[in-house]
Structure formats: structure tokens, C-alpha cells
Design a protein around this nucleic acid. Sequence first.
DNA 1: GAAATCAGGACCGTTGCGGTCCCCTTATCC
DNA 2: GGATAAGGGGACCGCAACGGTCCTGATTTC
Lengths: 159, 159
Amino acid sequence: MLRLSKLTDYAVVVMVRLGRGEAVQTSPCIAAATGVPEPTVAKVLKILAAAGLVASHRGARGGYRLVRPLDAVPIADIIAAIDGPIALTACVDGGTSCEAQGLCPMRGRWDPVNRAIEAALAGITLADMADPGLSFAAPVEAAALGPLALPLPALHVAE
Amino acid sequence: MLRLSKLTDYAVVVMVRLGRGEAVQTSPCIAAATGVPEPTVAKVLKILAAAGLVASHRGARGGYRLVRPLDAVPIADIIAAIDGPIALTACVDGGTSCEAQGLCPMRGRWDPVNRAIEAALAGITLADMADPGLSFAAPVEAAALGPLALPLPALHVAE
DNA sequence: GAAATCAGGACCGTTGCGGTCCCCTTATCC
DNA sequence: GGATAAGGGGACCGCAACGGTCCTGATTTC
Ligand code: FES
Ligand code: FES
């Protein structure tokens, strides 16, 4: 279903959370605020830190903070950080192609499709997802269910 | 990596093959022409037939033919036929949402992203992939390695 | 009636993903 | 300087989805 991984979804939630409130937040704190299980939050933050999307500070009084503001982080970056580079097929962009390389009829054919998706994903920032002030196509009715609400004390998993 | 399934890749190959040569072709014939294993071709064609993208004719002298010409089939249709509807997350478009429905901070937030991708995928047809007469952005250097060639006797798997 | 061809589903091995846990390093605070 | 609070970097395992194959039946032509 052309689905992106759950971790990516969590990453967006976590990043948006980091974009509000205290500048530096600990992973247990974020877990409590978002309802995402703490070990998972920690894992996500570690990956995001490795990708340079968040900065970490160790020791007591440590935690994570955003490196760039939300409106400067396209979701493409998040997806690339968690799921790896966007590559619809194995052979996109000269990567390791399918078995009989050099003979495949689809050689390079997916590249433009990949570009189109990358472009679409690069044009939407985390700020767009946090705040329904949409600047792209497709008016979303989701705006009707919570204008600027997003209080983020909400829970992902119950209890 | 936001990867689409291999079956989808095969489906495109098969569809493009159906777009040239005889109007009606059998699945073993297509398998031989494309190099894709015959059982897999048969499976793909069955799915495509169920989705109404190809028409089948049973019995001797039977086979498959395209319902619409290649330039009238956006890749979004292929992906939807094989991988199911395009849904980045479980909760897109009112589908079954994540566990604690109604409380999730990302509720509906992915919808516009999904629309953007759908739009990108709806704007590229199989004809665009078969023939590098690109009408969309991102000039592809793949055009340099085979203008209109695509003879399709090539093999996907070796041997 | 025989042969060709699709229809539909069952089947299983592999892979990647989701999720959890552990131990070590680093920095603050008393 | 020691205790404590936090992140760093993995290893680990169960599960579900996917890829790939095969079999049995229904349909059409010759
Ligand atoms: S599908 Fe890309 S090289 Fe075969
Ligand atoms: S991520 Fe869509 S409802 Fe939670």
C-alpha cells in the first residue's frame, strides 16, 4: 500500500512535539506527552539525532532540541532519516539494480517517478503538518476537526 | 524506503509489453518476452484483470489485452491494483486509524501528503514510462541509454 | 472431445519491521 | 568526588507481510 513505516509516523509526532514547549526535552517527557511508548520514542530520537535533525545533550538536565525550526524541515527529510533514502525500486538513481542488470527493460524508468514523489515530499514541511495553514493543493477537511488545536497531550496508545 | 512491491514493478513491465505487439497475448508468451517467471506473470495478470486494467479471454486462442491504451493508464492505477489503495498511514482518508482513534495528534494530518503523492502518481502514465517523451519535471538522463528502444526481449532474471 | 488458456486459491520460506531490553558513556548536581 | 539523570549504541526476538510456486477447476476454440 505504499505505506511508510510506523517509526516515521512516530518521528513526525515527536518532532512536532519538540517544536513546542520547552526548547530541550527528554525522551521520557516526550513519551508522556505524546503517548508513544518510551522505548520507541528513544529509538526514534536516536535515529533523528544521527541524521542531524535533532541535537542531543547528555547527562542530567540533558535532552533533545530541534536543530532547524519545523517550517524548515520537509517530511522528505524525516522519511529519509527513518526509512532510508526514497527509492521506489532497487534500481533508482543508479543503486543496486535487479538481478540481470543492464538488460532490464525498466532500467532507469522509475527515476522520474521517484523524483516526482521526492518533489512532492520536499514541498511539505513539518510546520504544514502541525498547523493546517496549508500552502499546497488539496484542501483538507481535517482542518475542520481542530483548527490550531493540536494540544499534543493526546495519546497514541490507550491508557 | 518507501519502496513499492516487486509485483508492481513486474506489473508495469507486463503492461508495457501488452501495449506493443499482438493485441492479445498469453501469459507464457509475455513471460518469455519479458523474462519474468511465468507463474509470477500469471499472478500479476490475474490481479490486473480483477482490477479491470486488462481484459482476459479464456480457452484456446485466449489471452490478455489492454482495456485502455498505455497513455490512459496512470501508474497510480497499477499501484492501487497491486498494492492496494495508496495510504501512507493506516488512518489516511478515514480508514482504520491507529489504536487510540480520536485522540491521535496526527489524525488526518497525513491526508494532504497522501493527496500530493497520489497527484504525482496520477500525472504519470505507462506511456511516459515506456517512452521517454517526458512531460513532467526532472529531465531524466535515462533517455540517453535507449531513446525508443525498449525491445523487451530483455531478461529480468538471468539465465 | 481434446487441447489450450485463464480463474482462484492454498501453500510455505524469507525478509524486514516493530518493539523491547541491556549496558556503557557523559554531564549535572549535591 | 560521588550519586544521579540522561543519551548512545547496540543486540535480540516475534510477527506479519511479501514473493514465489503449485494445484485444481472452469471456459473457450478447434
Ligand atoms: S527493475 Fe530496475 S533494473 Fe530491473
Ligand atoms: S497516526 Fe493516524 S490516527 Fe494515529
